[in-house]
């Protein structure tokens, strides 16, 4: 039993029999993510569980857990209805602190980019979109898809709150690739697929340029530290963001301000 770990007792909902034992995928500061099944054996799902915090007053703890699960589900539903690529919500019990979501196949964008960069011959050297235009096309394409996804997200009035390349999945496209540019095909495969945004645990509903700009800034910083060699390509994200989202220009102006002062707003007040 993968979950019968005494250190991490699974939520009650996972103690009942299922076709396959749930497996703990990851553990965050606030919650845990299990892979399990929804209703029928052939329907994989992700179960996010926020265990009770012993250091909090029980009443407050229950209220916070419930509010956070509910707000995450609400944001996901809103995004999903609007066609933003996010996992669908399957079932939830906010009082018990769990939510089942669609399981997104594929790898995190972070892994895809690193695999792509790992194959580059000149290790350590910074790459730029201009010097090796043709070579970097698949990666630039991925950046554009990221920008499009974020643009669509912001358009619905949601800010993610924790945009990183780990919080985006590369879901394999159904039916596979059509065009046959041989040779580079295998290499390009690691950055292929639909970008799906995940982990809306810190997401909020906001239409403010400030919040949107901070969202982009957080990703920009995360990107620069996770993939320093591809830092220059980040411009492609902003470019397609601008093409997807009508109100992008004012957000990008705000982004300049945020870059100057950092994520936190002035502490004067």
């Amino acid at each position: 039993m993968a979950v019968a770990d005494a250190q991490f007792p699974p939520p009650k909902v996972l103690t009942y029999p299922a076709s396959a034992p749930p497996s703990l995928i990851t553990q965050g500061a606030e919650g845990r993510l299990y892979k399990t099944t929804h209703l029928v054996p052939g329907r994989p799902c992700a179960l996010k569980y926020r265990p009770p915090k012993p250091y909090r007053h029980p009443t407050l703890d229950a209220r916070l857990t419930k509010a956070r699960i509910s707000s995450e589900a609400k944001v996901l539903e809103r995004c999903w209805r609007e066609g933003v690529p996010v996992p669908a919500v399957y079932a939830m019990d906010p009082a018990a602190g769990w939510m089942m979501m669609e399981w997104i196949e594929g790898i995190p964008v972070r892994v895809g980019i690193n695999e792509w960069l790992g194959e580059r011959p000149e290790d350590g050297a910074e790459i730029s979109s201009s010097s090796q235009e043709t070579d970097q096309t698949p990666l630039v394409d991925l950046m554009k898809r990221i920008g499009t996804a974020i643009g669509a997200l912001h358009k619905t009035g949601v800010v993610h709150g924790d945009l990183t390349t780990s919080n985006m999945m590369l879901r394999p496209t159904r039916g596979g690739q059509v065009d046959g540019c041989a040779g580079d095909e295998d290499k390009a495969r690691v950055v292929e697929g639909d970008v799906v945004l995940i982990d809306f645990g810190l997401a909020t509903q906001s239409m403010a340029d400030e919040d949107r700009a901070v969202d982009l800034y957080v990703l920009e910083r995360a990107f620069a530290s996770t993939h320093p060699r591809a830092e220059k390509l980040f411009a492609a994200v902003l470019q397609s963001y601008k093409e997807t989202f009508k109100k992008a220009p004012s957000v990008l102006i705000k982004l300049e301000d945020v870059r100057m002062r950092g994520r936190k707003r002035s502490m004067l007040g």
Partner: peptide
């Protein structure tokens, strides 16, 4: 189907 299931999961929210 997905939207319906989602609507049910979010009942009352």
């Amino acid at each position: 189907e997905r939207l319906a299931i989602m609507g049910m999961a979010l009942r009352g929210l």
